[in-house]
Lab assay of single mutants.
Amino acid sequence: GSLMYASIFGNVSAIIQRLYSGTARYHTQMLRVREFIRFHQIPNPLRQRLEEYFQHAWSYTNGIDMNAVLKGFPECLQADICLHLNRSLLQHCKPFRGATKGCLRALAMKFKTTHAPPGDTLVHAGDLLTALYFISRGSIEILRGDVVVAILGKNDIFGEPLNLYARPGKSNGDVRALTYCDLHKIHRDDLLEVLDMYPEFSDHFWSSLEITFNLRDTNMIPGSPGSTELEGGFSRQRKRKLSFRRRTDKDTEQPGEVSALGPGRAGAGPSSRGRPGGPWGESPSSGPSSPESSEDEGPGRSSSPLRLVPFSSPRPPGEPPGGEPLMEDCEKSSDTCNPLSGAFSGVSNIFSFWGDSRGRQYQELPRCPAPTPSLLNIPLSSPGRRPRGDVESRLDALQRQLNRLETRLSADMATVLQLLQRQMTLVPPAYSAVTTPGPGPTSTSPLLPVSPLPTLTLDSLSQVSQFMACEELPPGAPELPQEGPTRRLSLPGQLGALTSQPLHRHGSDPGS
């Protein structure tokens, strides 16, 4: 009898404990919600809404976190579960008819179910419309201010047509639940991603989709105040780019002037030289400038040598048109050559190039014969006009050509200096018209024969001689050997007369 009593008592207590286990969990969670309300000092109306929603959600799901349970299964099984949970929507909604099984599984994985109690606001006026909503159960109302403009029910759709707008718009009203509602919502990016994977279904979906109420604000059109608020930074940046392009296009129409201050000032006329910023005076940081632009901040801005204009002085008759350009485009679109090309026009420029290279940067340069637009006047290309890779490749080509020119210049200078040193070592320090008596009659020769300089066969020296023939050397430049009979510069000019005159010897006659 005691054994029977113990078994009955144990079973009854276990049954009672299981009955009250759900209630215990409910009270535990309710205590957490109330502690949250007390800690954050939530006001009474919002506090009442929180408690009511918790009670309804507990009775609806029995305190089970559906998302946590669903995430515990593998992905393939999750797709089947989501397809079952959203079967009513996918079967009865017209846009989803005719979709393949794979497309429906992908869509079912992207849908999220939302449960809303009465009085809950789903979308506020001015919120971004980031999702498309399908009503599965219940009814909602749409308000503009305090005026109800629409009441939607089961199988209705609200949001915005995503295929017509590249960016999400703003809501033009509040969406509030009238009863307990079940909503299926899919985010904008998720829907577009699935439709991109199934393009054959995309056309059918957009053609058959009928949005019951379009929440997009109709005033959000390009150029409206609301649109400016939504895309303020983007609009200002776009206007700045367009104004920069218009100014650079105007600059290219004036090829007669070359400016070292950047493309923003290349198009300024002579009357605007004294102004601080020219056409860019209202925004000094709008356009890029070269490193020399920092010198323009000092006094005497109108007389600054940074602004270059072609000189009108005539060229000498024998002067060549100019050196070879550094870039391939210089032959086609440049009416002034790079300062480095002028360094190779003569030997005198070679000796004085490194010492006063900055001073020569603004000297007169030889002109190319074609009066085409200036290379320095070409505006900086924006990322939309020329690819970045093209600019980098041009810079690399320019750097390689500069290296080759520097190597060639160093070799030419070394060769010229070597020839000058050899000339100085071969010439005796001094010569006299009267020579010392020699031991015999073989001493009648006034000077030792001097062998002429070897013929220069280097390509670089031939180019130097060509430049010497075309360029007029300055007075202080050293002379180079030329073709024809060679003669030492330090010898007297009348050596031929010395050989014809008898030598005057000093000596005593033994017979006297």
Score class of each variant (00 low, 15 high):
Gly226Gln: 11
Leu209Pro: 01
Trp206Glu: 03
Leu195Val: 04
Pro474Cys: 12
Leu143Asp: 03
Pro339Trp: 07
Asn219Arg: 14
Ile142Glu: 01
Pro279Ile: 14
Pro225Ser: 13
Leu178Glu: 02
Pro449Asn: 09
Gly159Gln: 02
Ala177Asn: 01
Ala411Pro: 03
Thr425Arg: 08
Arg247Ile: 10
Leu405Ser: 04
Gly511Ala: 12
Leu192Asn: 13
Ser341Ile: 06
Tyr133His: 14
Arg144Ser: 12
Glu257Cys: 13
Pro299Met: 01
Leu473Ala: 06
Ile350Ala: 06
Leu395Ala: 08
Leu503Thr: 07
Leu192Gln: 04
Ser290Arg: 05
Glu479Cys: 09
Gly298Asn: 03
Gly507Pro: 14
Arg315Glu: 12
Gly223Tyr: 10
Ser304Met: 12
Pro428Val: 06
Ala433Thr: 08
Asp189Ser: 07
Thr444Ala: 08
Trp206Val: 09
Phe467Pro: 06
Glu141His: 04
Lys332Asn: 12
Arg307Cys: 07
Ser139Lys: 13
Leu376Met: 10
Cys337Phe: 05
Pro371Tyr: 08
Gly262Phe: 08
Arg301Pro: 13
Leu143Lys: 09
Gly287Arg: 11
Ala477Tyr: 15
Phe467Thr: 07
Leu495Asn: 08
Val194Trp: 05
Ile142Met: 02
Ser381Pro: 12
Leu143Thr: 13
Gly145Val: 03
Ala469Met: 09
Thr228Asn: 11
Gly232Gln: 09
Thr228Tyr: 11
Leu261Phe: 08
Asp412Glu: 05
Pro320Cys: 11
Ser302Asp: 09
Asp335Glu: 07
Gly281Thr: 08
Ala433Leu: 11
Arg236Glu: 11
Ser382Phe: 08
Gly476His: 13
Gly476Val: 13
Leu480Tyr: 15
Glu479His: 15
Thr455Lys: 13
Glu200Ala: 06
Asp203Ile: 06
Phe353Met: 05
Ala150Asn: 01
Asp182His: 14
Phe134Trp: 12
Gly440Ala: 11
Asp146Arg: 07
Leu129Gln: 01
Pro478Thr: 04
Arg188Val: 09
Pro502Met: 08
Pro199Thr: 04
His184Gln: 08
Pro452Thr: 09
Pro474Leu: 08
Leu152Met: 04
Gln494His: 06
Pro299Phe: 04
Leu417Asn: 01
Arg367Pro: 08
Tyr431Phe: 13
Thr212Arg: 03
Gln482His: 09
Ser341Asn: 11
Ser445Ile: 11
Leu143Gln: 04
Ser303Cys: 06
Leu152Arg: 01
Ser500Leu: 13
Arg367Met: 10
Pro454His: 07
Gly223Leu: 09
Glu364Arg: 12
Pro441Trp: 08
Phe311Val: 12
Leu215Asn: 01
Phe344Glu: 11
Leu448Thr: 08
Phe351Trp: 13
Val258Pro: 12
Ile186Tyr: 02
Arg245Val: 11
Pro320Glu: 10
Gly145Cys: 04
Ser139Ala: 06
Ser227Asp: 14
Gln423Ser: 11
Pro168Asn: 03
Ala177Phe: 02
Glu200Met: 04
Ser207Arg: 09
Arg265Thr: 14
Tyr198Pro: 01
Pro263Trp: 06
Leu178Thr: 08
Gln501Asn: 12
Leu183Asn: 01
Ser500Thr: 10
Gly281Glu: 14
Arg301Ala: 12
Ile151Trp: 13
Phe134Gly: 02
Val391Ile: 15
